Simulated scan of single mutants.
Amino acid sequence: MYKVIGLTGGIASGKSTASDYIRSLGFEVLDADVYARKVTEKDSAGYHKIIEAFGTDILDENKEIDRRKLGEIIFNDPEERKKLNGISHPEIRRMMNADQEAFLKHNHVFLDIPLLFENGLDKNCDITITVYVTKENQMERLMERNNLTEKEAASRVNSQMSLDEKKNLSDYVFDNNNDKKELFDQIDEFVEMLKKQQL
Rank of each mutant, 00 (worst) to 15 (best):
L7P: 06
I11M: 00
T17V: 14
A18H: 10
I22L: 09
V29F: 15
D31Q: 06
K38H: 14
T40D: 04
D43K: 01
G46A: 07
H48E: 15
I50G: 04
D57C: 11
E61R: 14
N62M: 08
R67E: 09
R68I: 15
E72H: 14
P78M: 11
E80L: 15
K83E: 07
N85F: 14
G86P: 02
S88P: 08
N97K: 15
A98V: 13
D99C: 08
K105Y: 10
I113A: 08
G120S: 04
L121H: 12
L121K: 15
N124D: 14
N124Y: 14
I127W: 09
Y132I: 05
V133G: 00
Q138G: 04
L142D: 10
E144Y: 03
R145Q: 10
R145L: 07
N146K: 10
S155R: 11
R156S: 00
V157K: 00
S159K: 13
M161F: 02
M161V: 06
S162T: 06
S162Q: 03
S162G: 01
D164H: 07
S170N: 01
F174W: 09
N176F: 09
N177G: 11
N177T: 11
D179C: 10
E182W: 15
L183W: 05
F184K: 04
D185C: 08
E192T: 15
L194M: 02
K196F: 13
Q197H: 13
